[in-house]
Write a protein that binds this DNA or RNA. Structure first.
Lengths: 150, 150
DNA sequence: ATAAAATAGGATAAAAAGGTCCGAATATAT
DNA sequence: ATATATTCGGACCTTTTTATCCTATTTTAT
């Protein structure tokens, strides 16, 4: 099990990538995006479509077309993308699968797990696309693994 | 996405349940286990088999048979069960899916995510079956949701 | 010995996640 | 206007996860 679905992993990477290139509404084609983040092209197409529908990205068809961020998308939090693609079930459902897990009727790890889960949520809420994009631009982190250098 | 697979959720609950009933090598049948933890019976059978193979549980066939904990299993950590069923990929793989994600070539959330992920691991390592079983016995927590009362 | 009661194990099915393919629609540049 | 380049959308495929069913095997009690 992983915390994010593949679709969500690709979404976050794609949006960060576009944020590193959208100084001036520069458009990136599907192929460029999937190359940059190391994701399967056809599957990435579906995901970028979703992000357009969710108003995180804009798309333009035809020659010179491609994808770029929606106007204010540089300032959104990673959490917004997670919500758009995976929903909030990780943050609301019981880790042990209880239909209802509350303070009054908790699962055996509720008390210990909940604060940690909330930390993850806070982390995603407090981390912006802009900040991660800058970090990528500075070379402090990457969106796909490079065999040599970087 | 959830942190544990369904198989792992059921495993943890089943082992805790058996720990609440294995004072004297008391055996519990498949049906009793799946009823107690609210899991599908046939699927639970497969999971209990796995736990027997992993030497967490013992099983006895025939009349009066059933499942109980292996000798020392009351003192094992939840982490042992997670490892046996889901493996350690949650704790070793990159949250954003990078093939290799390290301090020298990290993903954009590596630095913030890793400490939290380690907290979850520590929590699972430091939480024993015995301790959760006692908590269930005291009525402080439950293994399945009860509509009315506790 | 035999019947009954349990788990073990194999085959299979259903649902979800991950992924591909291709034609339709659309925008651009010439 | 037309050819071209691109996204959009639907259908489909594959793998993994979740789940069921049935038969074989083993153990116990009589």
């Amino acid at each position: 099990m992983h915390i994010f679905s593949k679709a969500c992993e690709y979404s976050i990477k794609a949006v960060i990538f576009l944020a590193t290139r959208t100084e001036s509404d520069q458009r990136m084609r599907l192929r460029e995006v999937s190359k940059a983040i190391g994701s399967p092209e056809a599957f990435t197409a579906k995901i970028l479509q979703q992000l357009v529908r969710q108003r995180v990205l804009k798309s333009v068809k035809g020659p010179g077309g491609g994808f770029c961020l929606q106007e204010d998308a540089r300032n959104i939090a990673l959490y917004r993308i997670v919500l758009a693609i995976d929903g909030d079930s990780f943050f609301t459902d019981c880790a042990m699968g209880l239909k209802k897990c509350s303070e009054t009727q908790p699962c055996p790890i509720h008390k210990k797990f909940r604060p940690i889960r909330d930390e993850i949520k806070e982390m995603l809420i407090n981390t912006t696309i802009l900040e991660t994009a800058k970090s990528v631009q500075k070379g402090e982190c990457v969106l796909k693994f490079f065999k040599h250098r970087e």
